[in-house]
């Protein structure tokens, strides 16, 4: 009798362990899984708050939604795409590199490049001006108009 009882208890314990192992291996999403997706999204109602650290009721609901979708086998990309479809691209932590939002990526690079070119041109201009000032020839005969020269010569003759 005691032996039967022990065997029954062992069987029950073993079945619990099997269930636990199957549960662990089924890929049921953990909080880390949810946060991995959530950190790529922003709360659309509380500005500048990533979804993984946002504590409003709305954010909690969205994280629960992410968990539900991961649990039924959605990939991270599918969940993110669903959120974009549902709430718009503004929920993305990182703007997309296509369409109008691509400006966000390439405009700063283009601006800096053009800025550097303009800066280089300005520096070149300054340098050229400086060189010109240093190398500026003192008055040469050719720089003085002939009528002025004639007048100067006349004045000099008067003095001498």
């Amino acid at each position: 009798m005691t032996r039967k009882l022990i065997l029954s208890l062992l069987a029950i314990a073993a079945s619990f362990m099997v269930v636990a192992v199957v549960y662990a291996q089924s890929g049921y999403p953990t909080d880390d899984d949810v946060n991995r997706v959530a950190k790529q999204l922003y709360c659309p109602v509380c500005p500048n708050t990533p979804l993984d650290v946002c504590e409003t009721k709305a954010c909690q609901d969205w994280r629960a939604d992410i968990k539900d979708k991961l649990a039924v086998g959605w990939t991270d990309e599918q969940v993110i795409e669903y959120f974009v479809q549902r709430y718009g691209e503004r929920v993305l932590a990182e703007p997309r590199r296509s369409g109008f939002t691509s400006f966000v990526w390439f405009l700063p690079v283009v601006s800096v490049a053009i800025g550097l070119v303009v800066l280089a041109q300005i520096l070149r201009g300054w340098k050229a001006k400086h060189r010109a000032a240093v190398a500026a020839p003192t008055a040469q005969a050719g720089d003085i108009p002939p009528e002025v020269l004639q007048r100067l010569e006349k004045e000099l003759k008067k003095i001498s």
Binding site: V118, Q121, R124, G125, A132, A135, Q140, G142, D143
Partner: peptide
């Protein structure tokens, strides 16, 4: 001395077309 229409110094400081386009 024959006077040239533009001096060498003027030539150096005149912005080139690329610079103007850049601006």
């Amino acid at each position: 001395v024959t006077q040239t229409p533009t001096s060498a110094a003027d030539e150096r400081v005149r912005p080139n077309p690329w610079m103007r386009a850049g601006r």
